[in-house]
Write a protein that binds this DNA or RNA. Structure first.
Length: 556
RNA sequence: GCGCCUGUAGCUCAGCUGGAUAGAGCAGCUGCCUUCUAAGCAGCGGGUCGGGGGUUCGAAUCCUCCCAGGCGCACCA
């Protein structure tokens, strides 16, 4: 808010100078940011450094000229030129503090904005095959995808959360056979367990469930006739479990998109035909290939195998084409890092159908290493020994799980210490933020007990908030909308987690040094102003945690 | 071999759309609960930003080469 305001003022000054010199000066490529050091002002800009070469004058000279014009504005206390030509802007306290009324006015909506250009964005995430329960890695993808979606919504976009279900093909076949084998086992028949079959305990449970419901009626039905039943039953059962896990994890999808459906309505064939019409496919060794190398991939890819079956890639490109056909301006895929090799071929396809590549973003989420008291918990998908999202949620709770997943940049591997995540101790970062919120709530409880209502902006005198700590807190609170915006443009939800930690740290420190609710009646103006400040902090923490999918408890 | 990701404090990591003296948490040590929640606060120590070269007024950030680790390189999904 403040930054936008100031930017406009600086732009105006530039225009004036440009006009005087007969050159068009634009703000593009220029930074306006909060310096780390206080003596560099509330905001600092490098305009002069960037534009001076274009005017062929000394940066400091240009800086002085700009500073001179800026100082006529009443929002600045003073404007200084420093270093090689930075312009440091010192804002009037009254000007900064006046923005605090926005926090009250917007309330739960503080931090939400209407984007300059509202985009229709699809975020596809998790999309785990319905061949087994979600594991921790999927959990990370779910937390990141959901938080990112919420952030994009807050930034004013129209977001669709989507899960793509690979419900056809070899893997489903293998799943069905695995369950079938376990079923035969249960009724005492000899049947070889498929090679590379799904060995997890859940497969046995599904077989047992079928036995309970359907009895031994598959005993004498030919294998080929029986297996489709097993596939369908297993798929539905696992998918139900996945949906339940995600729901309990607080992740809700707008669309569950079935790969089978894509085939049934002929979209896969259609996409292949389109490529054929463009001369981008060819036959070799009995298979049909897409010339992805024409678009930067390092080898061509098979769309239809020699046995006539289409590949996973074929349906995936059909799906992606349809995403754009459905009118999404931007498509964001969140993949496990093991799929990164897939990126060039998908991008190749997008380019092949003439879509601006920038409309597709692919976020790679790195692996999660689980630790228990510093020791690695071993996981092997192969052997069916992986820790499920459900187990982690049950052990550490939903809030801690979600928060831990969001605490790292998503393309960096994550170490998740289960002991730490559930410890109710200061070294656990999740409680730190929630605790700040709860503390504010309890301050409010005390105030009300003393008959002091939590004031609105017009009931306070902001000039009594003259402590350095208060000023810093206010600036931090006012920076929140920009943080949300930056998370949205950078597709980086972890920034919000860090911001909230910083805000909580500033609050805790303030809380320990100063009293909000004073015992002395003559301090009422200060009490009211501080209560209002707390109210703003509380709003930001609550709104921020909500975007991350973490609760903001009133008591802890 | 090729490609992608990563390399920052003892550990886990921010910072990387270039900005002015590189940050946080944890671990270690020292203090703080008759006052709004000690799940908290204050203080102390800790760094050749993997290495070399380059671009720039300015590089942890951009380019390049090298080194180390992870992952991927199917007519599997």
């Amino acid at each position: 808010m403040i930054k936008k305001d100031i930017r406009t003022i600086v732009e105006k000054a530039l225009q004036e100078i440009g006009r005087a010199r007969g050159v068009a000066l634009e703000f593009e490529g220029i930074s306006l940011e909060e310096p780390k050091r206080d003596d560099h002002g509330d905001l600092s800009t490098n305009v002069a450094l960037v534009l001076a070469p274009r005017l062929k004058i000394n940066p400091r000279e240009l800086a002085a000229e700009i500073a001179d014009r800026l100082s006529s504005s009443e929002v600045f206390d003073r404007v200084e030129v420093a270093g090689p030509g930075f312009i440091n802007l010192f804002l009037k306290r009254s000007y900064i503090y006046s923005f605090l009324k926005e926090v009250e006015r917007r309330g739960d909506g503080y931090g939400r904005s209407s984007a300059r250009k509202k985009e229709k964005i699809q975020v596809e995430f998790v999309s785990a095959n319905p061949t087994g329960p979600l594991h921790v890695g999927h959990g990370r993808g779910a937390a990141v995808g959901d938080a990112l979606s919420s952030i994009l919504e807050a930034a004013g976009h129209d977001v669709t959360r989507e899960y793509y279900i690979n419900d056809v093909g070899n893997q489903m076949e293998l799943l069905g056979r695995s369950v079938y084998a376990r079923y035969m086992d249960l009724i005492g028949r000899e049947y070889p367990f498929p090679e590379n079959g799904y060995k997890g305990e859940y497969v046995v449970e599904i077989a047992r469930e079928i036995l309970e419901r359907e009895g031994e009626r598959f005993k004498d039905i030919p294998e080929d006739e029986a297996i489709p039943h097993f596939i369908d039953f297993a798929k539905d059962s696992i998918l139900d479990g996945i949906k339940r896990d995600l729901e309990d994890f607080g992740v809700r999808f707008d669309v569950w998109y079935s790969e089978g459906e894509l085939h049934r309505k002929g979209k896969v064939d259609k996409t292949i035909e389109e490529l054929r019409a463009k001369g981008l496919v060819y036959e070799k060794d009995g298979a049909l290939w897409f010339k992805s190398t024409d678009f930067g991939d390092d080898k061509d890819r098979v769309l239809v195998k020699a046995d006539g079956e289409t590949t996973y890639f074929a349906s995936d490109i059909a799906y992606h084409e349809e995403k754009f056909e459905r009118g999404f301006d931007k498509v964001i895929d969140i993949w496990g890092a093991d799929h990164h090799g897939y990126q060039p071929r998908m991008r190749a396809f997008v380019k092949a159908i003439g879509i601006d590549e920038r409309r597709l973003s692919i976020l790679l989420v790195q692996f999660v290493t689980l630790l228990r008291g510093g020791e690695k918990v071993s996981m092997s998908t192969r052997a069916g020994e992986f820790v499920t999202l459900r187990e982690v949620m049950d052990e550490v709770g939903r809030d801690a799980a979600r928060f831990f997943f969001l605490l790292r940049r998503c393309d960096a591997p994550l170490e998740f210490d289960l002991e730490l995540a559930k410890r109710q101790a200061p070294e656990n970062p999740i409680y730190y933020i929630q605790y700040a919120h709860a503390r504010i709530c309890s301050i409010f409880a005390l105030a009300e007990e003393r008959g002091i209502r939590i004031p609105s902006f017009k009931e306070i005198d902001t000039t009594v908030l003259n402590l350095k700590e208060e000023e810093d807190l206010i600036k931090k609170v006012l920076a929140y909308p920009e943080v949300v915006e930056s998370c949205a443009t950078n597709l980086a939800p972890h920034h919000l987690a860090f911001y909230l930690q910083e805000l909580a740290a500033m609050f805790h420190s303030y809380y320990n040094s100063y009293r909000v609710v004073s015992q002395h009646p003559e301090d009422l103006p200060i009490t009211l102003a501080r209560l209002y400040l707390c109210r703003c902090i509380k709003t930001v923490i609550k709104n921020g945690l909500q975007l991350l999918g973490v609760s903001a408890p009133e008591k802890m």
